Amino acid sequence: MQSIVVYCGANFGHKQIYRESAYELGAELAKKNIRLIYGGGNMGLMGRVADGALENNGLATGIIPNFLAKLEVAQKTLTELHFVDTMHERKAKMVSLSDGVIALPGGFGTLDELFEILTWSQLKIFHGPIGVLNINGFYDHLLAHLNKMVEEGFLHQAQLDLLIVSDRATDLLEKMQAYHESEKENKPLDTSLFVKNIEK
């Protein structure tokens, strides 16, 4: 894998372990020469994962909508910073640049991004590995609900298995790399049609 999108909160959360783990993930990406692709902000866990990559000689590319950049929340020391017009363009652009996706703890936006990319994977639009870094058991209740969806017949086990989960960055990246290498028909994501349809 040459690049990974990281979805995460623009807040730090109440516990120090969240910011520490976000930084460690960024540092681990740098160590493995994997470019960080993320939302371009300098606040909360977004800022920490970027710091972890950049302060360890890694590469970080941010994608940020113009209206958020005007609020002066963009990280200004990134390797690359792309400006787009809408949130839909932002999500499509981030994924189009990536070989995989990782979700850290976050709020509505993080969950929106995570479930959208899982849907794209289910529909064979996106072919890369999708991981959740389950720091401090943050996603335990969500994972339990996903299993409930399988139990009640609203989700197939094979679809749930698209999600790779670990509480350690190194372990998660190893599992994602194994998935990436086993995906023999990995096709590039064409986001142009998706964006056009969304904005109609």
Rank of each mutant, 00 (worst) to 15 (best):
Q2W: 12
Q2G: 15
S3G: 06
I4L: 15
I4P: 12
V6N: 07
V6K: 08
N11C: 14
F12D: 14
F12Y: 14
G13V: 04
G13M: 03
K15L: 14
K15H: 13
I17L: 12
Y18N: 01
R19M: 13
E20L: 11
E20Y: 00
S21N: 12
S21D: 09
S21T: 10
S21C: 07
Y23E: 10
Y23A: 09
G26C: 02
G26A: 05
A27V: 06
A27M: 11
A27D: 10
E28V: 07
K31T: 14
K32F: 06
N33T: 07
N33C: 04
I34P: 05
R35T: 15
G39K: 02
G40R: 01
G41V: 05
G41H: 04
M43V: 15
G44L: 07
L45T: 04
M46A: 02
M46H: 02
G47R: 07
V49N: 04
A50E: 05
D51V: 03
G52I: 08
A53V: 06
A53G: 05
L54W: 03
E55G: 13
N56V: 07
N56Q: 07
N56Y: 08
G58F: 14
A60N: 08
T61V: 10
T61W: 10
I63T: 09
P65H: 06
F67G: 03
E72F: 05
E72Y: 09
E72R: 11
V73K: 04
V73G: 06
Q75H: 15
K76L: 12
T77K: 15
L78T: 10
T79W: 05
T79D: 07
E80R: 10
L81F: 03
F83V: 11
V84A: 05
D85S: 15
T86S: 13
K91R: 07
K91F: 03
K91V: 01
A92H: 07
A92V: 09
M94P: 10
M94K: 04
S96T: 00
S96C: 01
S96W: 01
L97C: 11
L97K: 10
L97T: 09
S98V: 07
S98R: 05
L104E: 00
P105M: 05
P105H: 02
G106V: 07
G109R: 09
G109H: 08
D112T: 01
E113F: 01
E116D: 02
I117A: 02
W120D: 06
K124S: 14
K124I: 11
K124E: 15
P129L: 08
I130R: 01
I130H: 03
G131Q: 06
L133W: 01
I135K: 06
I135Q: 08
N136F: 09
G137F: 01
F138N: 02
Y139Q: 03
D140G: 02
D140M: 00
H141V: 14
L146N: 09
L146A: 09
V150K: 04
V150G: 00
E152W: 13
F154L: 10
L162K: 13
L162F: 08
D167G: 01
D167N: 11
R168Y: 12
D171E: 15
D171G: 08
D171M: 10
L172Q: 08
L172I: 05
L172V: 06
L173C: 03
Q177G: 05
A178S: 14
H180Y: 15
H180P: 03
E181T: 07
S182Q: 15
K184P: 03
E185F: 14
K187H: 13
P188N: 11
L189D: 04
S192K: 12
L193Q: 13
F194T: 11
K200M: 11
K200L: 12
